[in-house]
Amino acid sequence: MPDDYRQYLIRLIAMHGISEIMGALPEKEWVPRAPTLHRKLAIMAKVQDELGHGQLLLRVAEDLVAPLGMNREDLLNGLFKGTIHFHNVFHMPAPTWADAGIIGWLVDGAAIITQGMLVQGSYAPYCRALERIIAEESFHIQHGESICIALAEGTKAQRQMLQEALNRWWEPLLFFFGPPPKSELTKHQDLGLMYRLRNRTNEELRQRFFHKYVPRIQALGLTIPDPNLRLDKETNTWHYTQPDWSKFKAILRNEGPMSKARLILRHSAWEQNRWVREVLSTRAAVAV
């Protein structure tokens, strides 16, 4: 395996795995507060799947870093030290139940579009993990749709809660796929294309997201907070207002709205329970 191929894979897959673990945090805030028993069960299952996806991907990443003398502990430490980033979309607050719905519907939708590309990539262990992940995503999009449709068809206050959540998440959803081509931020895209780990640019994925979701969001009676958003039928391209990419760059420095709080939460839980992992990873000392 060429060294830069391995390095690219480690970067990609460790970040993906860590992002699943961190991505559980905004939604899990709503697990204990889910408004019905069915929702409570479903969101638990959903967040559990995310953690499970993190487990699959970290296992793949761990196998890649093993020859470098590293393990899971090192990957988590990379997160805490800021050398491994978690996905930009998980640095955002989720202040209402509707945010949990929007995450399930639209953030997961965006993730499926990306993963549908990555699963065709050149590294089989990653693809095998992604196949398992995508199979579970069918439930995830339905879970998110189900929450959002219930709110859209609910009371005025529920519809408003949903609209406000969409307003909050629209810009993060544009950030999701990363900056457009020919930007200083896209050098990793190019390497990914070269190693056949991706076959679409950020912008192509974002356009696909618009095609799939904009009509459906509007069908539910929601307003997308971008007056310039429109489909150019001739080129089949969506025109949209560019988000503020300086905010995106701040997130990459872990300076997003919830970056620090989520890192602290993950880090303190990891450290407080270190003694439990010692129990799992070392031989018993007490003779009974």
Binding site: G109, Q115, A135, S138, P215, A219, L220
Partner: peptide, 15 residues
Amino acid sequence: WRRYKHEPLTTQTMT
């Protein structure tokens, strides 16, 4: 979704 005149999205149609 049919009532909203859309087909439901699936992981197949999205990827």
